[in-house]
Each structure stands twice: as C-alpha cells, then as structure tokens.
Design a protein around this nucleic acid. Structure first.
Lengths: 201, 201
DNA sequence: ACCTGAACACCGTTCAAGT
DNA sequence: ACCTGAACACCGTTCAAGT
C-alpha cells in the first residue's frame, strides 16, 4: 500500500500526540499503546516510529504538552499579595491534578530508558513552573539570599505535590478533595508564616 | 514432571517474595516479571499463581514488606522532643527512600486493577506509619482538636514525601542528597513553627 | 494435590519489501 | 520517500495434562 504524503510528518506527529492524549485522558496511562495510537490515526505501528524514536520519546512530548498546560493554568492566577498568590498557585496545581488526573499522573510515570537523560528543553519547562513560585518568595522576602528563597520554593512546591500524590493516587490515603485542599492550604500558609517570621534556614 | 511437595505453599510464597524483592532491588521495578521470578526460584510461571492471585497481588505483598521495613526504620527514631522527633522521622524516611529507592518506588507504582480496592490490612500498615507522626503532633499541641492535628500530620508528611518524590525520581529536579535533606528539614521546621505559633487552621 | 509447559492475547520495536 | 505488515522477543495469565 504505502499511502503517500496524505499527511506531512509534522501532521502525523500532531495526530499521534492528539490520539495519545485522548487515550490517556479516557482510558488511563496503562491503555496507552503504540498499536492503539496507530489504530486511532489510521496508520500502522511502524509509522509512529517515523515521528518518534520510541514510546518514551512520545510520552516525553506528551508530558511536555501537559507541563505547558499546567503552566497556562498557573498563569491565570493573578493575586497581588505574594502569600495569597502562592496559596492560589497551590490550589490551581491541585485542581489541575485532580481534574486532569491521568495526564498529570503520566508525568511521574515516565521512566527514561537507562542512560538516557532529560532533554534541556524539557527541564526548562519544569524550571519555568518552579520559577513562578520562586518569584513570589522573592517578593515575600527580598532581603534574603536567592539560594534561600529557591530552597523555600522547592520545599513548599514539593510539599504541595506530595499531598496531591498521596491523596489523588489513592494508594496511601482516602480522603475527600475538600480535605486535600485544606491540607494544601494548611501547608502553604504555615510554612510561609514560619519562614517569614523567624527565617529558619 | 510435577515436582511434589519439595516446598510447602507457604515456603514457595516466601521464596517468590524473596526473589521478587531481590529483582526489584538489583534491577529495578521494570525488571520484575513472573518469568524472572519463576526462573529464580526454580519453578515455572504457573506455580506463582498457586500462591498469588496475580502480579498486582504479589506486588501488594511485596509493598507490605517494604512498609513494615519503613516502619521498623522509623521505630528506631527516639527523640524526646516532639519537633526534633518529627524532623528525625522525616530524615529517616528520606534516608530509606534514597537507600532503598527501587523498593520505595514500587509502592507508588502499584496500580490496583480496576474495581479492586486496597485491603484493610494493607491500609492499616499505612495508617500505622502516619500515626507515628500524628502522635508527635499531639504532644506538640495537646490542646488542639484531634482532627486538626491529623490534618497537620498529613500535610507535613505529604510534604516530606513530595520532596522525596521530586528529588529522587529525578524527573523534576536534579539536586544533591544533601540539599534534599535541607529542604525536608526546612519544610518540617517552618511548618511546625508556623503551626505552633499561631495555629492557622 | 502439586506442578508443568504450551497456548493465548497481548506488548514495543525493527526492517525488508512494496508503491 | 513514505508506509506497510510481518517478524522478533518479550509480557501476564490460564488450564488441560501429567505425576
């Protein structure tokens, strides 16, 4: 057969990512297979390997989309007060994780094949997410050293993520979404107050 | 062939779990397959299904061991001061996660098959881990309501876990182990100070 | 009763062959 | 140059058949 140039490689790439995204959204991480993607876009398995090196590469690019998506959501948050802003960012992250659970979950499922390293462009997207929080910590305590603020941002953001993981994955804790938000707010608020008040380093 | 009663079912069960544990420790989560376990213990694949319902069941029991192991490590922590104790528990958890990464990682990899629910005995083990931290929060603020203390314990423990996840998985953040410990301590200390000082609820 | 091992329905990945 | 589809080396799970 060898259907010729019905779509450009760029188009196929896009089709693959769209199909993969839908499969993950609808049927979860474990349902994502090359064969299912191929079926969905009307090509055969071999074609996928024209536009992605392998499954891990495909997932990496899918996750990149999700990171952009999360970034866009966080961008919506516009609180003037830095403390309230960090709180709102935390809530927005939790909200994204709970409403787009499967896509969010895929980010942390990704195990790069041995020896492989995360591409710089991907790491940049992650750093960009962190930078939002860091910037607010800078506003919160302009007099402190940058390294100190960075560590605070990482600690609190890691903390937020951890509560999301334990609560949403359901492996560790069964609790309503309302309670999760309460926990997140509790963590952020108390950490910031502790940090601002006496500057434990 | 049908080798008869060389080992009791109980013994085979133990052999399976031991083999599985070693495979995970040495070659990681993705290397854990029924065929590999069978090869390791000198039985065929079918035998595994005499002692475990399926792979998910096997992994659940492997994770139960890991939870016991973590609990035993946390039991070692004997700090009289509640704040320092929580800090030490956090460090011990981080230490376990980093030195037994593969086993720790498997706990959160487990996706129970659709419709399945976590057994009570397993959930009890998880609750037992949480209770250690809760008890210390109770000492920290005996006058506060139990629900409040539980939420604080969950928030801070989730937070500790999150920092471990983001740092150790390496998907999100590349940073030395020393820095991770600093972040964990930073989170715990500031959260507790904020929580004790003004009781944000 | 215990255990085998072949069979089934899947995976991801490769690549000679077709248009 | 683009794409196929069969082949390869794997999975987890089942179950008739052997001792």
């Amino acid at each position: 057969m060898a259907r010729r140039s019905e779509h450009s490689l760029e188009e196929i790439r896009e089709m693959v990512l769209n199909a993969a995204e839908n499969i993950v959204i609808e049927d979860g991480v474990s349902a994502l297979t090359v064969r299912k993607i191929a079926l969905e876009i009307g090509y055969t398995v071999g074609s996928i390997y024209m536009v992605f090196a392998n499954m891990a590469d495909l997932i990496l690019h899918l996750n990149a989309r999700t990171l952009d998506d999360i970034a866009a959501q966080l961008e919506q948050v516009q609180e003037p007060d830095p403390e309230q802003c960090i709180e709102a960012l935390a809530k927005a992250y939790l909200h994204y994780a709970s409403t787009h659970f499967n896509r969010w979950h895929l980010i942390f499922e990704a195990r790069l094949p041995e020896g492989a390293t995360i591409p710089v462009w991907y790491q940049d997207k992650v750093d960009h997410l962190f930078s939002r929080v860091e910037a607010r910590f800078a506003e919160l305590a302009p007099q402190r050293a940058e390294a100190e603020r960075k560590r605070a941002a990482r600690a609190v953001w890691g903390g937020i993520h951890g509560i999301c993981v334990l609560s949403l994955n359901g492996t560790l804790d069964r609790v309503g979404l309302y309670d999760v938000e309460e926990s997140v707010v509790l963590l952020v608020r108390n950490f910031i107050h502790g940090w601002v008040a006496q500057g434990v380093d």
